[in-house]
Amino acid sequence: MMEEWKTPIQVEGTVHRDGDGYLVEESKPRLIGGCLIAPGQFTVPGLLDQAASERADETATLYLPRGITLSVGDAIRVPAEHPLGGTWRVEEPSSPWPRGTAVVISRR
């Protein structure tokens, strides 16, 4: 059943690690298949204080297959037909989870 929820994502970042662990500069977007995205929290619209205006409007957790890590600041594009489709940014370093790695993503 979990296979039905998986989606490919497009990552646009300047540097990442290849399969052998070497840092590689990326000149073009890369496609990563088999990802899961879980919704996080949403902010209340209309708050005017500076701290609220600097916060992300939406957050989510992106679960990646084994061996894939992302860097803080990487841009993530989720297909438009996905309920969480659109452009996101990686907010925190990748963390391990039993089936790969996970990162917190946000969009404003």
Rank of each mutant, 00 (worst) to 15 (best):
M2G: 15
M2L: 10
M2I: 14
E3Y: 11
E3N: 15
E4F: 13
E4H: 15
E4Y: 05
W5V: 15
K6C: 03
K6V: 11
K6G: 11
T7E: 02
T7W: 03
T7Y: 02
I9S: 11
Q10M: 10
Q10R: 11
V11K: 03
E12Y: 15
G13C: 09
V15G: 05
H16M: 11
H16I: 15
H16K: 15
R17Y: 14
R17W: 06
D18G: 13
G21C: 06
G21Y: 01
G21D: 06
L23N: 10
L23C: 04
V24W: 02
V24T: 05
E25H: 08
E25M: 10
E26I: 09
E26S: 09
E26R: 11
E26D: 05
E26P: 01
S27A: 07
K28A: 12
P29S: 13
R30K: 06
L31E: 09
G33R: 03
G34I: 06
C35V: 02
C35E: 00
C35N: 05
C35I: 07
L36V: 01
L36K: 00
I37S: 00
A38W: 07
P39F: 08
P39C: 06
G40M: 04
G40W: 03
G40E: 03
F42N: 08
F42H: 04
T43P: 09
T43Y: 02
V44Y: 03
V44R: 04
V44T: 07
P45W: 01
G46Q: 12
G46N: 07
L48R: 10
L48M: 02
L48H: 11
D49E: 08
Q50T: 07
A51W: 06
A52Y: 05
A52D: 13
S53Y: 09
S53M: 14
E54W: 10
E54S: 07
R55P: 09
R55H: 12
R55C: 01
A56M: 12
A56V: 13
D57T: 15
D57K: 11
D57R: 15
E58Y: 14
E58F: 04
L62G: 00
L62T: 12
Y63L: 12
Y63N: 08
L64H: 13
R66P: 15
G67C: 06
G67E: 05
I68P: 09
I68L: 10
T69F: 14
L70P: 08
S71M: 11
S71K: 12
V72I: 14
D74Q: 06
D74R: 10
I76P: 06
R77M: 04
R77G: 01
V78K: 00
P79G: 00
P79K: 08
H82N: 08
H82I: 09
P83R: 03
P83F: 03
P83Q: 07
G85D: 01
G86L: 12
W88P: 05
R89E: 06
R89G: 05
R89P: 01
E91R: 04
E92R: 10
E92N: 05
P93Y: 15
P93M: 10
S94P: 14
S95T: 10
S95A: 11
P98F: 07
P98C: 06
R99M: 00
T101S: 10
T101Q: 04
T101W: 05
V103M: 02
V104F: 00
V104A: 07
V104H: 14
I105Q: 00
I105S: 01
I105N: 09
I105Y: 02
S106R: 13
S106Y: 02
R108C: 12
R108V: 03
R108G: 03
